[in-house]
Amino acid sequence: MQQIEFDTKWTMVVDIDKCSGCGSCMVSCQAENNIAPMEDGSNKLKTLTWMLVYELNNGKEFPERESAYLPRPCMQCGNPACVPVCPVVATTKDEEGGIVSQIYPRCIGCRYCMAACPYHARYFGWFDPIWPEGMEKALSPNTSTRPRGVVEKCNFCHSRLMDARARARAEGMDPNKLPDGWYKPACLEACPTGAISFGDSKNPEHKVHDLIKDKNAFRLLESIGMDPQVYYISRRDWVREQSDNHLPKDKH
């Protein structure tokens, strides 16, 4: 499929060296996106975590061991594996900014997109969401609740983008040229170590424009060619190495 280039490219940059794995982003994400609490959170294969923090290590024995944390939202790939496979156009990459949409009322729940995504960024509503009594009063107005049986994923808190555009319109500004910091996903707002940066990487006035050019910036699985809109930064060689598969002879 033809890859569409947009004038705006909403880009997340995560500084892995600063992530302490505290989990605030994951909690905030659930609150913002109305993900019902899950009693058995330890079954990582059935829980819904649009934002998931992975634990990485350098594979060495004590005392050479080092570890790191890698928060994984949806990569909003430029060349997404999930979009072309959807049989019912429930997921697209067609909006200015390049956020990969996931439309719950359209989704039939075939899970082909989940099989296609190597980042495991897509989740399935295995059961109807149930909030403890009363907790539905703390639902966020920003994300619709989903019935069981549909696929869902991180969308960079997309309705915050819509809110920011509405605000720009109200102030007589161009809704497609938002100033840096007007549009912030919930995970960024919650991150106490400032590991997450966000903005339009095509806009030189946005911080991420330069951050993605940092010498330590990389993306996950670049060799497969999915062109993610999420970048990571780490000074540590071993972390950067784990961003992609390398043949033994290519490792240093």
């Binding site: 505290c22 605030s24 609150a31 403890p132 703390a138 919650a190 106490p192």
Partner: peptide, 17 residues
Amino acid sequence: GGVDAISAGGAQLLYSP
């Protein structure tokens, strides 16, 4: 300006069982 992982869900805790 930071928030910890418990406080981030503070609103939901209002309705904690």
